[in-house]
């Protein structure tokens, strides 16, 4: 095991796959010479050369469109969109073209590509550089959607996404880039569609994603001190979604909370709540509760942004007071 930061794990995952497969190419704004605005791709230009690690103009439709055209003709491109908010500028390519082309062509076209993007709040960037947009991607048939919470998962899930034959939206969380964790030595590949139980407890199940995972774990520690023992599940992959791990846990705890950074309406937790309500209604001891950002664009000021996102305190109070 080696300790790596979340951002270093991005580069490690990319390097591992580029070393292994010479059809893996990277494109994006400022990714090559500058090493990425979040410094997630330094050293790759030097190691793999300017053809495989290539800077683009600020042209998100060209970036995603080029990735699509290359993916259907023999490359495995990894395209970076600097901020996930920018997917709005190329949503046609992602949602209309990339997501639907396999279906519309009855399987003639395969698109093994990854769109990496920096997602989420906590950097005081305001409403257009802070959103959690994984639920946009989740709503479109044909896309896989991954959002890791740890450096090990960044590397392992990024590798799995690159090897996957379907288009994957890979959401890296901006506020996690500096966090550190152990990453297995040697080749590390995880499996898409497998949730991870981060903490075991018998009283309630908390499901969380990306930056909400460490918050859910902190809240669970405080709840444990109060005698409420929670399971915390890191969903990791929204499509495919590991419902069995979640259902299995709720079957034993009989309580479900979701912790979502997205604004309230149609967040990913709503789908999980719906599945659990449909399939485990009579196992539940209380209502399913979603802990989310309120339905607002994100404010910039630190005091406002901090109070907008689900905090450890809010998670703790919500669960404690509903028990």
């Amino acid at each position: 095991m080696a300790e790596l930061s979340y951002r270093d794990a991005v580069a490690a995952g990319l390097a591992q796959e580029m070393e292994r497969d010479d059809t893996v190419y990277m494109i994006g704004e400022d990714i090559a010479a500058a090493g990425g605005v979040f410094k997630a791709t330094p050293g790759l230009l030097e190691r793999f050369g300017p053809r495989r690690v290539r800077d683009t103009p600020i042209s998100e439709e060209a970036i995603t469109g080029a990735a699509m055209g290359a993916a259907m003709t023999g490359l495995r491109p990894v395209a970076e969109l600097m901020f996930s908010d920018f997917i709005a500028t190329c949503w046609d390519i992602i949602a209309n073209q990339i997501a639907k082309t396999r279906y519309m062509t009855d399987g003639q076209i395969t698109l093994p590509l990854v769109i990496r993007t920096a997602n989420g709040a906590g950097s005081r960037f305001g409403a257009q550089h802070s959103q959690s947009l994984e639920n946009w991607a989740m709503a479109v048939p044909g896309l896989k959607v991954v959002a890791p919470s740890t450096p090990a998962d960044v590397k392992g899930l990024l590798a799995a996404s690159i090897r996957d034959d379907d288009p994957v939206m890979f959401f890296e969380h901006k506020s996690l880039y500096a966090t550190k964790g152990d990453v297995p030595d040697g080749e590390h590949v995880e499996e898409l569609g497998v949730a991870k139980v981060r903490r075991e407890g018998s009283d309630a199940t908390i499901v969380a994603l990306a930056a909400m995972v460490p918050r859910a774990l902190d809240a669970a520690e405080r709840l444990a001190a109060d005698g409420i023992d929670c399971t915390v599940i890191d969903v990791r992959s929204l499509v495919p979604l590991d419902t069995q791990t979640i259902l299995g846990s709720v079957r034993s705890t009989s309580r479900l909370y979701t912790v979502e950074e997205n604004p309230r309406l149609c967040g990913w937790g709503a789908e999980i709540a719906s599945i659990v309500a449909e399939e485990l209604f009579y196992d539940l001891d209380g209502p399913i509760v979603r802990i989310t950002t309120p339905h607002v664009p994100l404010p910039a000021a630190d005091a406002l942004e901090d109070a907008t996102l689900p905090t450890v305190e809010r998670i703790y109070q919500t669960i404690k007071n509903s028990d």
């Binding site: 190419y25 053809r51 042209s59 439709e61 060209a62 970036i63 995603t64 469109g65 080029a66 990735a67 699509m68 055209g69 290359a70 993916a71 259907m72 003709t73 023999g74 490359l75 491109p77 046609d92 390519i93 209309n96 073209q97």
Partner: peptide
């Protein structure tokens, strides 16, 4: 939409 996609196929042809 297909203009950047065509460019991507050309990029792939060039790299291959």
């Amino acid at each position: 939409a297909h203009m950047p996609i065509a460019a991507g196929a050309a990029w792939s042809a060039m790299e291959r």
